[in-house]
Every structure is written in C-alpha cells, then in structure tokens.
C-alpha cells in the first residue's frame, strides 16, 4: 500500500508542467554529462597508467645507484629497496568495510613474508661468501705451492687445506658486524612473519569449532597460575 501511495504522489508531481520542462531540459544535457564522465574517467585511468609506468621505471633508477661488481649481492639489495619503496605501499592501503581488519592482516602477512624471503636470501648470500673466498684463497695457495714445487701428492690433503681455510673464513665472517646484523634481521623478519601468519590463522579459526593458540594460551596461563597457587598453598600447609 505504501509503495502504491508513493508511486501515486510521484506520478502526480511529474505531470506538473514545470517538472515536464525540467525533464526535457535534462534530456538535452545528457550527451554533455556522458561526455564529461567519460573524459574524467579516461583522464584518471591515463594518470594511473602514467604513475604505474613511472614506478616501474624506478626499478632501473634504484639499481643504478649500486655498483655491480658484485651482481648477486647488489641485485638482492636493489630488489629489497625497490620492494620497500614501490610495492609495499600497495599492501598498506587502508582497507574499508566489515572485513577491513581481516584484509589488513592478510596484506600485512603477505608483506612480512616478502620481507622475510628477501632477508633470508640476503642471509644465505652472506653465508655463501666464505665458500667463494675459500676457493679463491685455495687457488692462490695452489699457485704458490706449484711455484715452490711443494704440491701435495695426496688428493685428501687438498680437502684438508680447503676445510681449514673455509673454517677460518667462517670464523672471520661470524665475528663481523655485517653477519650479526644479517642474522638478527633475518630472525626478526621470520618472527614478524610468523606472528602475522598466526594472526590470520586465528582469524580463520574463528568460524570453525577449533580453539586457537590464543584461546589455549589463555587457558594454559590460568592453569599455570592456579597450579602455582596450589603448590604454594601445599608447601605452606606442610611447613607452616
């Protein structure tokens, strides 16, 4: 009934001469309106394309800043910097609506995973340096021994020489600040990724009849405190 009444009111209003005049004028403006909307959308789209292209070109710019005498190391660093300055921000775009928190946590996990993967690659690269260097030193040593005519005849002697050199390089590396920093950073990024991953697992467990780690931790903490209180009470009762 209410709908019919509203429809009736609208029809009578539209039959008024002023309303009819307004409608006919708006029809004549329609092509202009469509044209404006189209132009505006196209302009925004082209601008977005332009920005994306500009950001993609930054990859080259980032890389140019580094020396490429050590290609592997620098390319990792270039990728890490490019990710942090150009890609990461898209994962940090504020989310809207009912699911905003879940989406935000999902984006954060993707971001943490990317950061961890990059630092792990850097860490592995640092760990591979002693191998590279030990081979170089070994080559020099063999050259020296050849010159002196003291090359060992036993092939195992070469292995023993190499492992000793490798051990020395590892020890030097492990005492360096560079290694400690890389290790702490990788471990830290792993922990941040695990923390974020656990949060999205907890989100997904909410809809399932399964307790999450957080639920269990709360329970364990209560159990721990209760047990401690009981043990203290028992001790105090036994030795008043």
């Amino acid at each position: 009934m209410t709908i019919l009444k509203s429809w009736g009111t609208l029809t009578s209003a539209m039959t008024e001469p002023s309303s009819l005049d307004s409608v006919s004028r708006s029809l004549s403006l329609m092509p202009d309106f469509v044209m404006k909307v189209f132009q505006s959308s196209l302009g925004s789209y082209m601008k977005l394309q332009e920005q994306l292209l500009a950001k993609t070109q930054n990859l080259g710019k980032e890389a140019e800043a580094y020396r490429f005498d050590n290609l592997d190391q620098d390319s990792l660093k270039a990728w890490s910097d490019f990710y942090k300055s150009e890609i990461r921000q898209y994962l940090n775009i504020p989310q809207l609506g009912l699911t905003r928190f879940y989406q935000e946590r999902m984006n954060q996990t993707i971001d943490k995973f990317n950061v961890f993967s990059t630092s792990l690659a850097e860490f592995m690269q640092v760990l591979s340096l002693p191998f590279e260097k030990s081979i170089k030193v070994m080559q020099d040593k063999i050259e020296d021994l050849t010159r002196e005519g003291k090359l060992p005849e036993d092939p195992q002697e070469y292995y023993r020489m190499w492992i000793k050199i490798l051990e020395g390089h590892f020890m030097t590396l492990f005492k360096s600040e560079e290694y400690t920093r890389a290790m702490a950073e990788t471990l830290g990024n792993l922990e941040e990724f695990l923390y974020s991953r656990n949060r999205i697992i907890e989100d997904s467990l909410q809809s399932l009849p399964i307790p999450s780690n957080k639920d269990m931790d709360d329970l364990y903490q209560e159990l721990y405190q209760i047990k401690k209180r009981i043990k203290n009470l028992e001790k105090n009762t036994a030795n008043p």
Binding site: E167, F170, T180, G188, E191
Partner: peptide, 30 residues
C-alpha cells in the same frame, strides 16, 4: 643482539630445532 621478546612472542617456546641450527652455524665447516 637477539630480540628475545619478539622471538618468544612469535614461537611461544624456543624451538629446539632452531637452537640446533644456531649451534651448527657456530662452525658449519666442521
């Protein structure tokens, strides 16, 4: 240099395997 708070918040307990990996890294050549 270890941020132990972050480590324990992430792992709960300190994983034995992770510690073992750390011990191996003390002298990987050997």
């Amino acid at each position: 240099d270890v941020d132990v708070d972050r480590m324990i918040d992430a792992f709960g307990n300190m994983p034995g395997d992770l510690m073992n990996f750390g011990f191996l890294l003390l002298n990987p050549a050997r």
